[in-house]
Design a protein around this nucleic acid. Structure first.
Length: 569
RNA sequence: GCGCCCGUAGCUCAGUUGGAUAGAGCGUUGGACUACGAAUCCAAAGGCCACAGGUUCGAAUCCUGUCGGGCGCGCCA
């Protein structure tokens, strides 16, 4: 029937071919490649539907139903298409497709033959993508906000890679600057206290249990060797030591936790490493050349308003230190000029950083002359909304410095990886999310992830039984008499490639959780209405293959969001 | 004040880039296992898609305005 393409894409192209000439005659040929083909919304409307005639009607000002009739005539002239379906014009001018049974039966077999590649892509223009997310300060534990971005970013990576793009993930370590300094001082103070010395946390110091534990661990490593360096006030060398050692310990723990959350970064990039080579100063000097900067009020500014920002931004402060913005430009310049030649840089930022987008994009434009024209990557910034923690009906302020946030660790021990990832990815990243830990723990057993996993386990059970019973598959070409439930299940599973494609293109992995739920529901309904192994031999063979396809599709859709697909539960 | 995001069933949220009669889970009510797994299924109830205009064959979806909520608007990171 088709080679590597999935059935729906194949069908789409057949329709395109059939109507292209007609559309070209009307001067709207482009519609052949941008019309919509969707699952019919309800029974009686067939299996697939297109609003092509309605859209064409708006473009050339002809009555839609008449256009629909002409389009159908063109489709009927396409022999391949005619073998797959019959047509009907309905309502204001929809064209409904009623797929023939052998087309559906054949499509299941073809999809199954693709194995785990069903739904995977081979894009016309594969991209080399550097995807950056989480990027937390190494001054404490990862919290549920980070968990949300980790789940989202990692799922997006899996989806884009599945679609055939070359994706590298990166964690940018903000291990430089005032926050790190305060963290080092906080650890020094806690260290002194573990030795029984009098020491006070800095005013803005990191409170809570976590820095205390890190300090205790360092004390275990070095004993009282730095006793004289930390009191009455820590020496510069002591601060450096605690900052660096603390950073190492925190990062190691973050890696371990992310690993437990099934999030694996290809690269960890240190901000401090940029300073070690003077990268911020260097990039600022390069920007001075083409007149992108200006000195004002004793500071050096980047004229970002030239590129749509609402005000210019400081690169070098009055007292000579580069701003975070300057080092971020150095970082982005680095990303733009790596030997891999990424053609797309995707950053996932929290909503609290959205005000930063305009200046970063402006900076990228200012950098353009410094990067060869055919090597300039496109910068794409995705803003993820925040997670609100609800406690006893009230919002709880999350503060790392006060040590009052709900941690990723808490989430994992409370509700587990599968439930947590499913829950976090299930909502659009564009909507703020309320998380009530008490309810989340109570509700973890009714998390929809189990509904989807159960469908998978159930199918595994059927397949196991088939093997145990020595079930023999027979050829089911020509099988007919599809029930409504199996027809629905077939259509749902055949649409998987379009769902993955949309999830990748729109950067919306949450479409996969919705899809997984819908496919599982469709399967459960099928299961209750259509015996598999008990059916007559041809039906049994077909249904068993359908089950296998659904099983592997559920497994893939879960895999793409980092959730396991158990064989039994 | 300005900018971005959001407002859909009692609660938590989807809604395939503008499609046909608005969807799911939880909760409520009532049903289905001597059956390939009841972590399931079936049925009922529940809606002025915040509000008001506009665009068109058609709007939860796009535009304008209003109201309400979140987040920003540093020579912090």
């Amino acid at each position: 029937m088709q080679d590597s393409a999935d059935f729906i894409s194949f069908f789409y192209k057949l329709v395109s071919e059939a109507v292209r000439g007609l559309l070209a005659g009307w001067g709207i040929e482009k519609l052949a490649d941008m019309y919509t083909l969707e699952p019919a919304s309800r029974r009686g409307h067939g299996d697939l539907a297109t609003s092509m005639a309605l859209v064409a009607s708006g473009m050339i000002n002809h009555p839609p139903r008449q256009l629909a009739e002409e389009l159908v005539a063109a489709m009927q002239a396409n022999q391949g298409l005619k073998e797959l379906t019959r047509f009907e014009v309905a309502g204001p001018g929809f064209i409904n497709f009623f797929l023939k049974e052998d087309a559906l039966v054949g499509a299941v077999g073809s999809a199954l033959a693709l194995g785990t590649h069903f739904g995977s892509g081979d894009p016309d223009h594969p991209e080399k993508i550097l995807l950056e997310f989480v990027s937390a300060n190494p001054t404490g534990q990862l919290h549920v906000g980070h968990a949300r971005y980790a789940a989202y970013g990692d799922s997006l990576k899996r989806v884009l890679a599945f679609l055939g793009h070359d994706v590298t993930t990166e964690f940018y370590i903000n291990d430089y600057g005032a926050q790190m300094e305060i963290f080092g001082r906080s650890l020094a103070a806690r260290y002194a206290q573990t030795l029984g010395l009098e020491a006070e946390l800095p005013v803005d110091g990191y409170r809570g249990d976590y820095p205390r534990r890190v300090a205790a661990r360092i004390a275990g490593e070095i004993g009282d060797r730095l006793r004289d360096e930390v009191t009455p006030a820590p020496s510069a060398a002591a601060i450096d030591f605690f900052r660096e050692r603390g950073c190492e310990i925190v990062l190691a723990e973050m890696k371990a936790e992310l690993d437990g959350f099934r999030v694996d970064f290809d690269s960890w990039f240190s901000e401090a490493s940029l300073y070690a080579v003077g990268a911020a100063q260097k990039i600022v000097d390069k920007l001075k050349g083409p007149g992108e900067t200006e000195t004002r009020e004793g500071a050096l500014w980047l004229k970002t308003t030239r590129y749509g920002d609402d005000k210019d931004r400081v690169l070098i402060r009055k007292h000579g230190e580069p701003t975070y913005f300057a080092s971020d430009i150095a970082y982005h310049f680095d990303k733009a000029t790596r030997p891999q030649h990424f053609n797309r840089l995707i950053n996932i930022w929290g909503a609290d950083h959205h005000g930063y987008v305009a200046r970063m994009k402006a900076a990228m434009q200012a950098l353009e002359p410094l990067v060869p024209e055919n090597e300039r990557p496109q910068l794409e910034i995705i803003i993820g909304q925040l997670v609100n923690v609800i406690e006893r009906g009230e919002r709880r302020q999350m503060s790392k410095r006060k040590g009052t946030m709900v941690t990723l660790k808490e989430l994992l021990t409370g509700i587990g990886v599968d439930a947590a990832r499913f829950f976090l990815v299930d909502r659009s990243h564009d909507s703020a999310m309320d998380l009530d830990m008490e309810k989340a723990k109570l509700k973890s057993e009714e998390n929809p992830v189990y509904y989807v996993q159960y469908a998978h386990a159930r199918i595994c059970s059927i397949v196991r039984k088939a093997e145990a019973d020595g079930f023999r598959m027979i050829n089911y070409d020509g099988y007919s008499g599809l029930s409504n439930q199996e027809r629905q299940l077939i259509m749902d599973v055949l649409f998987f490639p379009q769902v993955v494609d949309g999830a990748g293109r729109m950067r919306e992995p949450h479409r996969l959780t919705a899809y997984g739920r819908a496919l599982a529901a469709s399967f459960h309904v099928f299961y209750h209405n259509c015996p598999v192994l008990g059916a007559e031999p041809q039906a049994a063979s077909f249904r068993l293959d359908l089950c296998r396809l659904v099983r592997s599709t559920i497994a893939t859709s879960l895999e793409l969001i980092g959730v396991s697909a158990p064989q039994s539960m």
